[in-house]
Amino acid sequence: MKEIIQQIKNLESVSSLSKHEQLVQGIINAIDEKVVTKGDLMPSVNTIINELGFARETIAKAYKELIHRGIIESKNRLGYFVATDDVQQELKVALIIFAFDIFQETFYENFRKGLGKNVQLDIFFHHNNFDTFEHMVHSVKGKYGMYVIAPIPNAKTPGLLKLLPTSRVLLVDRNLDTDEDYNFVVQEFGDSSYKAFVQLKDKIKKYDEIVFFFKPSSAEPNEILESFKRFMKDYDIKGVIKEGYESGSLEKGKVYFTIHNLELWEMLKDTKLKGFKLGTDIGFISHNDDIVKEIIFDGVTTFSTDFAAMGKKAAEFVLNRKKIQEIIPTVLINRNSL
Rank of each mutant, 00 (worst) to 15 (best):
D85A: 13
D289P: 00
F257L: 15
D306F: 11
L250W: 04
K323D: 09
L163D: 15
L319T: 12
F284P: 04
F184S: 06
G70F: 08
V331H: 03
K252Y: 09
N129K: 11
H68L: 07
Q104F: 12
I327R: 07
H68D: 14
K272H: 08
I204D: 07
R230M: 03
S193R: 12
F100K: 00
N175D: 13
R69Y: 02
T330K: 10
D40E: 10
F317V: 04
K274M: 13
D290E: 10
K323F: 10
E316H: 07
K205G: 07
G253Y: 14
Y80S: 02
I102C: 01
T166K: 13
F307A: 10
V36A: 01
P151H: 10
I327W: 08
I333F: 11
G275A: 09
N154A: 03
L262M: 14
M42T: 02
K141C: 12
E243S: 13
F107A: 08
N154T: 00
I67R: 01
Y80V: 01
E251K: 08
P151G: 10
I241D: 06
D234V: 04
G39Q: 00
I328T: 07
M232Q: 14
N110I: 02
L161N: 15
H20G: 04
K203W: 11
Y80T: 00
L264A: 05
Y144G: 05
E65H: 06
M310P: 06
K113H: 08
F189T: 14
L338F: 15
L250Y: 05
T47E: 15
I327D: 08
F111C: 06
F54G: 01
S304I: 14
F214T: 00
P221K: 15
V35P: 14
F212W: 08
D181K: 12
S167Y: 09
V24N: 08
T302E: 00
A55H: 06
V36N: 05
G53N: 07
K19N: 09
H287E: 10
